[in-house]
C-alpha cells in the first residue's frame, strides 16, 4: 500500500509539472502582445518606446525557459504575480475569493451527495415505486436545463414572487440556498442514477438472496450490506461531479453576483488578463490532480478487493 501511495504521488507530481509547462506555453504563445496591452492601458496610443519599456518591466524580453523558471519559482515561494487589469496582487485577490467559491462548492456538493444518495436508497427500498420512476425524468430534465435558466426561474419564484429569499448577493445562509440548489441539482440527479444502478447490481448478488432467505428485512440489507459495497464507485462518480461543479460555479457565481474565484477567472478571460489566467489554470489543474489522486488512494484504502487485485498484479 505504501509503495502504491508513493508511486501514485510521483505520477501526480509529474503530471502537475507537465501541466504547468503546457499552461505557461499556451498562454505565452497567445496572439496579442501583453506588453502592448499594458502600455495601452497606461497611456492611450502608446509609442514603441513605451511598449518596449513595459516589456522590460514585465520581463517579457527574456527567453521563454527563463521566464518559465522565474514564474514557477515565484509561485513556489507564494508570489503569484500581478494582475494586468487591476495591478493588484493575484495571491491576495485569490485569498479573498477562494473561500467564497469553497463555500458555494461545499454547500452544493453536500446537497448533491445527500439528495442523490437519498433518492437512490429510497428507490432501492421500493423498486419501481414513485421515487424510483421519477429519477429518470428528473435526471434528464436537470442535465438538460441550462443552469442560468434554472437560476432565473428560482429567482423568479422565490425572490420576485414569494419574496422568501434574496435574488442575488452573498450574505449569509439565506442568500446561499438558491446558488447551492442551482449548482447541486444536476450532480444530485446524476448521483441518484449512478448510485441507484450500483445498488441494483449490488442487490442482485447471491449474498442478498441468502440474507433475504434468512428473513432479514430488505431495508436493513440495503443499508448494512449493499451501501458499503458501492462506496468506491460512488466516490469515483462523485469526484467527477465535483470537477464539473467547479466549472458550473463560473455560471452560478456570475448570475448570483458572488465575488468568488470562478468569477475571477471569467473576468480574466474577458479582459485577457494573462497572468491571472495562467495562475488560475495552474491552481485548477493542481486541485483536479489532488482530487483524482485522493480518490485513487482512498478507493484502495476503502476496498480490500482492490488492494488484493493490486497485490496479485504485482507479484
Amino acid at each position: 500500500m505504501r509503495r502504491f501511495i508513493i508511486r501514485r504521488l510521483g505520477t501526480s507530481l509529474l503530471v502537475l509539472a507537465v501541466s504547468s509547462v503546457v499552461i505557461f506555453l499556451l498562454v505565452a504563445s497567445a496572439p496579442g502582445d501583453p506588453a502592448q496591452l499594458v502600455a495601452e492601458r497606461q497611456s492611450f496610443g502608446a509609442d514603441r518606446e513605451t511598449v518596449e519599456r513595459v516589456r522590460k518591466e514585465l520581463g517579457l524580453d527574456r527567453p521563454l525557459p527563463v521566464q518559465y523558471i522565474d514564474w514557477i519559482g515565484d509561485i513556489a515561494v507564494g508570489d503569484l504575480g500581478t494582475s494586468l487589469k487591476t495591478q493588484t496582487d493575484i495571491g491576495s485577490d485569490l485569498a479573498e475569493r477562494v473561500p467564497v467559491t469553497a463555500r458555494l462548492l461545499i454547500g452544493a456538493a453536500v446537497f448533491a451527495l445527500v439528495a442523490g444518495c437519498g433518492l437512490a436508497v429510497l428507490g432501492t427500498f421500493w423498486p419501481g415505486g414513485f421515487v424510483d420512476r421519477m429519477s429518470r425524468p428528473l435526471a434528464l430534465l436537470s442535465v438538460s436545463i441550462p443552469s442560468f435558466y434554472l437560476a432565473a426561474l428560482l429567482v423568479l419564484l422565490f425572490a420576485v414572487g414569494l419574496r422568501w429569499l434574496p435574488s442575488q448577493g452573498d450574505s449569509g445562509l439565506r442568500s446561499s440556498l438558491l446558488p447551492w440548489f442551482t449548482l447541486g441539482l444536476a450532480p444530485a440527479a446524476v448521483m441518484a442514477r449512478v448510485v441507484r444502478v450500483a445498488l441494483a447490481e449490488s442487490m442482485s448478488r447471491p449474498y442478498v438472496t441468502t440474507a433475504l432467505s434468512k428473513g432479514r428485512k430488505r431495508r436493513e440489507i440495503v443499508i448494512r450490506d449493499a451501501v458499503p459495497n458501492i462506496a468506491v464507485p460512488t466516490m469515483t462518480a462523485f469526484a467527477a461531479q465535483v470537477g464539473l461543479m467547479v466549472t458550473g460555479a463560473i455560471v452560478v457565481e456570475s448570475i448570483f453576483s458572488w465575488q468568488g474565484a470562478s468569477a475571477y477567472f471569467l473576468e480574466a478571460v474577458r479582459f485577457r488578463d494573462f497572468p491571472v489566467m495562467q495562475v488560475w489554470l495552474l491552481l485548477f489543474a493542481a486541485a483536479f490532480i489532488v482530487l483524482n489522486t485522493f480518490v485513487d488512494i482512498a478507493s484502495r484504502a476503502i476496498d480490500p478487493r482492490l488492494r488484493r487485485a493490486m497485490a496479485e498484479g504485482m507479484s
Binding site: 496572439p31 466549472t247 463560473i250 471569467l266 485577457r272 489566467m277
Partner: peptide, 16 residues
C-alpha cells in the same frame, strides 16, 4: 479537462 474550462481558456487566449 472539463469542457467549459477548455472553451473559456481558448476564448481568453484568442479573444471572444
Amino acid at each position: 479537462l472539463p469542457s467549459l474550462i477548455t472553451a473559456l481558456a481558448t476564448l481568453g487566449l484568442l479573444g471572444p
